[in-house]
């Protein structure tokens, strides 16, 4: 998709107008306007990037692949019972929040960093973190640079409107260095500017740098990921404020994915797990208790998610492992990582 300035402006102006006409959310049915609408159209609308390998990028058959895409599928399996009932809506870094605010998408699963400003000012909520990331730098091996601290005076390619551009500005200020930003909205165009040598470094979330480097194939060896990670970038799944029921569904679907990994429930063994005697597994899969009903869903919601998408570990192995990125802090807390599921009871 080629991004064009006039088009985006028109889109945003359109969104502003549609916001003007939108009616306040009404409390009926399940108590969640977003869930009711999703059930009516038998589909959830999921805002993704569509350009980041490992997170969301169409494969050769046009099927959206990646951790963010699978996160959307998990929510669809929980909300409407079918992981294929997702409409992927590509959003840019600049129109993503407007798309969510105006109701064009039901949730945003788009390598978006959880910050106070975004929750405080934008009327949006982060439901869970699906990737603990940080800003890194990718440079060419030929430049001979081996540390971000040696990049005084460098020209850096970065996408505008991201938390990355703020993180780099902070990093350079703290280290009393200067840099020249090259800000290009369109990701392929930005990456082209880096590869052609317009910029000394390409900076974004380290995960995206690693997958971009991987996607260069044999030329990957010419690119070096600098060791410094200069910021915390917890990438999360976002929903609108004002629909707490929907927020619960998105958050607990994600917790169910992690719980399933903790308990060793996978897409392959979920059916046999139905007869498990472990009370946690029985509650998770809806054999005992009414956890699904509490969310306004079917008690089989988590079963559907695991059966159709797998647990969080399976999502990771399917999408991120092939890119050569280690699990490290994204592992379960029991394995030295940060993913820790609150009790489902």
């Amino acid at each position: 998709m080629r991004w064009n300035g006039a088009g985006a402006l028109a889109l945003m102006a359109g969104l502003a107008v549609s916001l003007g006409f939108a009616q306040p959310a009404t409390a009926q049915g399940s108590g969640s306007a977003t869930l009711d609408a999703a059930k009516t159209r038998a589909q959830i609308l999921c805002g993704i990037s569509g350009q980041v390998p490992g997170f969301s990028l169409p494969d050769s058959q046009g099927v959206m692949r990646g951790l963010d895409a699978d996160t959307c599928r998990a929510i669809a399996a929980a909300a409407v019972g079918d992981a294929t009932k997702v409409k992927f809506v590509p959003t840019t870094t600049q129109n993503r929040f407007t798309a969510l605010q105006s109701g064009e998408v039901d949730l945003l699963s788009r390598t978006t960093t959880w910050t106070l400003g975004r929750e405080g000012n934008l009327g949006l909520l982060f439901a869970w973190v699906n990737y603990y990331d940080g800003t890194g730098f990718l440079v060419k091996k030929s430049s001979g640079v081996d540390s971000a601290k040696k990049m005084d005076g460098a020209t850096i390619c970065v996408q505008p409107g991201t938390s990355t551009e703020l993180a780099i500005a902070d990093f350079y200020r703290v280290n009393k260095m200067k840099f020249t930003p090259i800000l290009i909205q369109d990701l392929p165009e930005l990456q082209g500017a880096f590869l052609s040598g317009r910029c000394d470094a390409y900076s974004t979330d380290a995960s995206a740098l690693a997958t971009f480097r991987f996607s260069q194939g044999p030329k990957a060896a010419d690119l070096v990921l600098l060791p410094e990670i200069i910021s915390k970038e917890p990438l999360g799944v976002m929903v609108r404020k004002g629909d707490d029921k929907w927020f619960d569904i998105v958050r607990w679907t994600f917790i169910a994915l992690i719980t399933a990994e903790e308990k060793g429930v996978t897409a392959a063994n979920v059916d046999s797990m139905l007869t498990s005697t472990d009370p946690d597994i029985r509650r998770l899969l809806g054999v005992d208790g009414d956890l699904g009903k509490a969310l306004g869903l079917d008690n089989k919601w988590a079963y559907n998610v695991i059966k159709q998408v797998g647990n969080f570990g399976e999502m990771w192995d399917r999408n991120i492992t092939p890119m050569g990125v280690p699990r490290s802090i994204n592992n379960l807390w029991t394995k030295g990582g940060l993913q820790y599921a609150p009790p489902m009871r």
Partner: peptide, 24 residues
């Protein structure tokens, strides 16, 4: 159209501002 090639005209800077502040 400067946004497409990274020249920071009013639209480019305003877009970034929009994104960082959310005040569309």
């Amino acid at each position: 159209l400067a946004v497409a090639i990274g020249f920071q005209d009013i639209v480019s800077i305003a877009n970034t501002t929009l994104n960082q502040t959310g005040q569309a």
